[in-house]
Amino acid sequence: MRKLVSIAAASVVVMSLSACGKSGYDRARPDEFAVARQAPLVIPPDFSLVPPKPGAAPTSAGNPNAQALDALFGGTAARSASESATLTAAGTDTAADGIRSDVGDPDTAVVDKAGTTRDIVAAPEGDGQDARATTPQN
Results as ranks from 00 to 15, higher is better:
Pro54Gln: 08
Ala8Thr: 03
Ala96Lys: 14
Lys113Phe: 15
Arg2His: 06
Gly62Leu: 10
Phe47Glu: 07
Ser82Glu: 15
Gly115Phe: 10
Asp97Trp: 03
Arg27Pro: 00
Ala131Trp: 15
Ile120Leu: 15
Gln129Val: 05
Phe47Ala: 05
Val12Arg: 04
Phe47Tyr: 15
Ser23Lys: 13
Leu17Cys: 10
Val110Asn: 02
Ser16Cys: 10
Ala78Lys: 11
Thr88Glu: 13
Gly115Tyr: 10
Arg37Glu: 11
Phe47Val: 00
Gly115Arg: 11
Lys53Thr: 07
Asp112Glu: 12
Asp31Met: 01
Ser23Trp: 12
Phe47Cys: 04
Ile99Asn: 08
Gln67Met: 15
Ser48Lys: 11
Pro45Trp: 04
Ala109Ser: 08
Ile99Gly: 01
Ala89His: 02
Ala85Phe: 02
Lys113His: 12
Pro30Lys: 08
Arg132Glu: 15
Pro44Ser: 02
Pro52Lys: 09
Ala36Ser: 12
Thr92His: 07
Ser82Leu: 11
Val14Met: 13
Ser16Pro: 00
Leu17Lys: 02
Gly21Lys: 14
Ala131Phe: 14
Ala56Phe: 08
Ala123Asn: 13
Gln129Ile: 05
Ser16His: 01
Glu125Ser: 09
Ser82Tyr: 08
Gly74Trp: 11
Arg29Cys: 01
Val110Tyr: 12
Leu4Phe: 07
Asp46Ser: 06
Ser23Val: 09
Ser101Val: 00
Thr59Cys: 04
Arg29Glu: 10
Ser48Pro: 13
Leu4Thr: 03
Gly62Ser: 07
Lys22Asp: 04
Thr94Lys: 11
Thr117Glu: 15
Val121Tyr: 09
Pro51Gln: 09
Lys3Arg: 07
Gly21Ser: 13
Glu32Tyr: 09
Asp26Phe: 02
Pro40Glu: 05
Gly74Met: 10
Pro52Cys: 08
Gly126Glu: 14
Ile43Val: 11
Glu83Arg: 04
Arg27Asp: 06
Gly104Cys: 05
Ser101Tyr: 01
Pro136Asn: 06
Leu49Met: 13
Pro30Ile: 01
Gly98Leu: 13
Ala85Gly: 03
Leu87Ser: 01
Thr59Asp: 09
Arg100Gln: 09
Cys20Arg: 07
Val5Ala: 01
Thr86Val: 01
Glu32Thr: 02
Leu17Arg: 03
Ala28Leu: 12
Val50Cys: 02
Ala28Trp: 12
Asp97Ala: 14
Ala66His: 06
